[in-house]
Measured scan of single mutants.
Amino acid sequence: MFYPNSPQTSPQLTQIPYGQQYAMMQRQIQQPYHPFATTEPQARLYPYHYQGPIQQEQGGFITQQSTAASPQYVQMRVTPVDQSIMSGYPNQTANGSSSSSFNYNIHPQQQQQQQQQQQQLRHHAMPVGSVPLQDDRYRKQLIVNYLAPDVTSTDLHELFSRFGELDGARIIYDKQTNMSKGYGFVYFCHAEDAKEAVERMSGYEFHGKWLKVGYSTNPLNIVPSNSSPYVHAGSRGAAG
């Protein structure tokens, strides 16, 4: 039997160049792979992502010199942007860049009308829970959420009447099932009393439920100042 490094198959040491006398086997001759043993700084910083320098080929596509990437890492192929796409944008300079302001050559009167329309939209648009300043009635009506099913309009009136005089209180019921929808409205005579009720009743436990109280901004629920107070009856038909 002959071994790869046996004296019968191995040459004389004098015939082997210096430095390879003890590297006779194939696994010894093959050098191990060192990912950080390279002179390129990109490979030292990113050993798993770097795959060699990027070269520009004919046709405008950018390719990489090395083989496919590892399945664990996804390499994105980048193509140059066609400058003709950006030619339609206004205020574009000769080098292809555009300024931040756009001039669509709008007539001054049209621009003024658009600004007025935007101001009107901001004036009428009102986020949930906010209180408008032009109508004091919005500051007097509250919406009470997360009410228990057994709470009546009379219970709601008695709960909030300790903060001040009320114009009314009612629970909203479903017309088909005649069941409470879980929320109601309270109408105060003074805005200061309503503000105190919002601050003190939010998070209050009532009939096993934690109440959420806020201003009601729905104009359909506003009680006119010259109208008669609501009837605080315990029956659902009268309260709904």
Rank of each mutant, 00 (worst) to 15 (best):
F2C: 00
F2M: 01
Y3S: 09
Y3E: 02
P4N: 14
P4W: 07
P4L: 09
N5G: 04
P7V: 09
P7I: 09
P7D: 04
S10Q: 10
Q12A: 14
L13K: 02
L13C: 10
T14D: 04
Q15M: 05
I16V: 10
I16F: 12
I16Q: 05
P17D: 10
Y18N: 03
Y18I: 05
G19P: 06
G19K: 05
Q21W: 00
Q21M: 15
Y22K: 05
Y22N: 04
Y22H: 07
Y22S: 13
A23D: 06
A23I: 10
M24I: 09
M24P: 08
M24N: 12
M25N: 08
M25H: 13
M25Y: 07
M25A: 02
Q26P: 14
R27Q: 13
Q28G: 03
I29N: 00
I29Y: 15
Q30M: 15
Q30E: 15
Q30R: 01
Q30A: 15
Q31C: 12
Q31T: 07
Y33V: 13
Y33N: 04
Y33P: 14
H34C: 13
P35W: 00
T38Y: 15
T38G: 04
T38L: 04
E40D: 05
E40P: 13
E40S: 02
E40T: 04
P41Q: 06
Q42D: 12
A43Q: 15
A43M: 12
A43T: 07
A43D: 09
R44E: 00
R44L: 13
L45R: 02
P47N: 07
P47L: 14
Y48A: 03
Y50C: 14
Q51P: 03
P53T: 04
I54M: 15
I54V: 10
I54G: 14
Q55S: 05
Q55P: 05
E57C: 10
Q58K: 09
Q58N: 00
G60I: 15
G60W: 14
F61S: 04
I62Y: 14
T63A: 02
Q64V: 12
S66N: 12
T67F: 15
T67W: 10
A68D: 13
A68H: 02
S70Q: 14
P71H: 00
P71Y: 07
Q72T: 05
Q75K: 09
M76C: 12
R77I: 13
T79I: 12
P80A: 06
P80V: 15
P80L: 12
V81D: 06
V81L: 10
Q83I: 09
S84E: 12
S84M: 06
M86P: 02
M86R: 08
M86V: 08
M86N: 00
S87Y: 12
S87D: 15
G88S: 06
Y89F: 14
Y89R: 06
N91M: 10
N91T: 07
N91D: 06
N91H: 08
N91F: 03
Q92T: 07
Q92D: 15
T93S: 11
N95A: 02
G96F: 14
S97I: 07
S98R: 11
S98V: 09
S99M: 01
S101K: 15
F102N: 10
N103F: 01
N103M: 15
Y104F: 11
I106F: 07
I106K: 07
I106H: 04
H107W: 00
H107M: 01
H107E: 09
H107G: 08
Q110D: 11
Q110R: 04
Q111D: 10
Q112V: 08
Q114N: 09
Q115L: 10
Q117E: 08
Q117W: 14
Q117L: 10
Q117K: 11
Q117R: 06
Q118I: 10
Q119T: 02
Q119P: 09
L121A: 12
L121K: 00
R122N: 09
R122C: 00
H124T: 04
A125F: 13
A125L: 07
M126I: 04
P127M: 04
P127I: 15
V128R: 05
V128G: 13
S130Q: 11
S130N: 09
V131F: 13
V131L: 05
P132Y: 01
L133Y: 01
Q134R: 01
Q134H: 14
D135V: 07
D135A: 11
D135Y: 05
D136E: 14
Y138T: 00
R139D: 04
R139W: 07
Q141C: 04
L142H: 04
L142I: 09
L142R: 09
I143W: 02
V144L: 09
N145Q: 12
N145H: 05
Y146D: 02
Y146S: 09
L147R: 12
L147N: 01
A148P: 03
A148M: 02
P149N: 10
P149E: 03
D150G: 11
D150S: 12
V151C: 15
T152L: 08
S153T: 11
S153G: 01
L156M: 02
L156Q: 13
H157R: 04
E158A: 09
L159S: 04
L159N: 13
F160A: 01
S161Y: 06
R162K: 14
F163S: 07
F163R: 07
F163I: 03
G164A: 05
G164L: 06
G164C: 04
E165I: 10
L166Q: 10
L166R: 06
D167R: 02
G168E: 01
A169Q: 05
A169R: 02
A169E: 14
R170V: 01
I171V: 03
I172K: 05
I172T: 03
I172R: 06
Y173T: 13
Y173G: 11
Y173E: 00
D174R: 06
K175V: 07
K175W: 14
K175I: 03
Q176T: 10
T177Y: 10
T177N: 14
N178T: 06
M179G: 13
K181E: 00
G182K: 15
Y183W: 01
Y183A: 02
Y183L: 00
G184R: 12
G184Q: 09
G184H: 14
F185R: 02
V186C: 04
V186M: 02
V186R: 06
Y187K: 05
C189D: 01
C189I: 03
H190D: 13
E192N: 06
E192Y: 14
D193N: 04
D193K: 09
A194H: 09
A194Q: 04
K195T: 05
K195A: 03
K195N: 14
K195C: 07
E196C: 03
E196R: 06
A197G: 05
V198F: 02
V198K: 12
V198T: 03
E199Q: 15
M201K: 00
S202C: 01
G203S: 04
G203C: 04
G203K: 03
Y204L: 09
E205H: 09
F206R: 04
F206K: 15
H207N: 07
G208Y: 01
G208M: 05
K209D: 02
K209T: 03
W210G: 05
K212Q: 08
G214V: 05
G214K: 05
G214F: 05
Y215N: 07
Y215G: 07
N218I: 09
N218T: 01
P219Y: 05
P219M: 10
P219D: 11
P219S: 03
L220R: 15
L220T: 10
N221G: 11
N221P: 14
N221I: 04
N221F: 13
I222W: 13
V223E: 04
V223I: 10
P224A: 11
S225E: 02
N226Y: 04
S227K: 09
S228R: 14
S228E: 15
P229K: 13
Y230Q: 09
V231A: 15
V231I: 13
V231N: 01
V231E: 09
V231M: 00
H232F: 07
H232R: 11
A233K: 14
A233M: 00
A233N: 09
A233Y: 00
G234N: 15
S235Y: 11
S235M: 00
R236A: 09
A238K: 14
A238D: 06
A239N: 05
G240A: 07
G240N: 02
G240C: 08
